[in-house]
């Protein structure tokens, strides 16, 4: 796969790549376990078999995320090549998505530990695989940071906050979809197979709400620090590009959502729809990375094909 396409610079990079590939394999295995658990008929006579699938899925995700984070650490130790990059001299295509995948899995495991949400694992695990595979199979060249940004704390904070915010909102998005599906089934009185797997609507709503608040907080930090990074690299605090536009729209929508929930008591379906809309705007932000000219945005260098 990737190892065959990309020439290895040294042994250390080979180890990093191997860690990422093992992590990816663990994510694939987790996705299989969770999906089998989701689609197979529920058998009360054999609850152990069901819980074993979920346990195996969780274990695979844990193994995957530990190895994945270890690959970032290894990459950082060797000077910033390959999958990590923060604080290094250059980024390779797909790094941001790889980081986003790792943070999402870690976030999910915390969420699952707190709320017991295996059904969300059936969405998160395949999503992680879907993000990781193109991030590591698409061959792109490494991009140099602007010299002023090589060791920029603002950039590190910006990328970290963006990844955490995106992961939180991604999980909130997944929960919102689950809420809408579950709510529709309960409302229409046609409980399907998913129905028995779902936790209560109240729990999904509460978990989604907390993730949205965290997502909003990190997105606020990402936008503020992004402005600093932009000023450092281009001199403009807030360049008018699609990426920034989508980010601000997503932020505004989430702010409105939080206001509506706290002041008017909005909850349930309409909040779930707003979270879905907010996340789609955030996806628009990432799409904006592709559309932006290389020099217009620092992060344009962080995506496959960027710059």
């Amino acid at each position: 796969m990737l190892a065959a396409r990309r020439p290895l610079c040294n042994q250390s990079e080979a180890m990093t790549t191997a860690l990422v590939h093992i992590a990816l394999s663990a994510y694939v295995a987790a996705a299989v376990f969770f999906l089998v658990w989701l689609v197979r008929p529920q058998r009360p006579a054999a609850p152990d078999a069901t819980s074993r699938l979920v346990s195996a899925g969780r274990a695979m995700l844990l193994v995957g995320v530990v190895l994945h984070l270890a690959s970032f650490a290894a990459a950082r130790a060797q000077g910033g090549i390959a999958t990590a990059g923060l604080g290094g001299d250059e980024w390779r295509g797909g790094q941001l998505f790889s980081l986003l995948a790792a943070v999402t899995v870690a976030g999910y495991l915390i969420l699952d530990f707190r709320y017991k949400l295996p059904v969300a694992g059936a969405f998160v695990a395949p999503f992680t695989v879907a993000v990781m595979v193109p991030a590591h199979l698409v061959q792109t060249g490494a991009r140099q940071f602007a010299p002023s940004l090589t060791h920029s704390a603002a950039l590190a904070l910006h990328v970290g906050a963006a990844a955490l915010g995106s992961a939180a909102l991604g999980l909130a998005f997944a929960l919102s979809l689950l809420y809408l599906l579950g709510e529709k089934q309960i409302k229409n009185k046609h409980p399907g197979r998913l129905f028995s797997r779902l936790p209560s609507l109240d729990l999904i709503d509460r978990a989604g709400w907390r993730l949205s608040v965290w997502g909003f907080a990190f997105l606020s930090i990402a936008i503020a620090t992004g402005s600093l990074v932009s000023k450092e690299s281009t001199g403009a605090s807030f360049p008018l590009q699609p990426k920034e536009g989508f980010a601000v729209l997503a932020w505004a929508l989430l702010a409105a959502l939080i206001q509506a929930r706290l002041v008017a008591g909005w909850r349930g379906r309409r909040v779930a729809l707003l979270v879905v809309a907010g996340f789609l705007l955030l996806v628009g932000t990432y799409a904006g990375l592709f559309a932006a000219p290389p020099q217009a945005s620092t992060l344009s260098m962080l995506v496959p094909g960027g710059g």
């Binding site: 579950g182 309960i186 129905f195 779902l198 936790p199 209560s200 609507l201 109240d202 729990l203």
Partner: peptide, 9 residues
Amino acid sequence: QLARKVLGN
């Protein structure tokens, strides 16, 4: 059972 599905605990 349905009440629990909607309201949780």
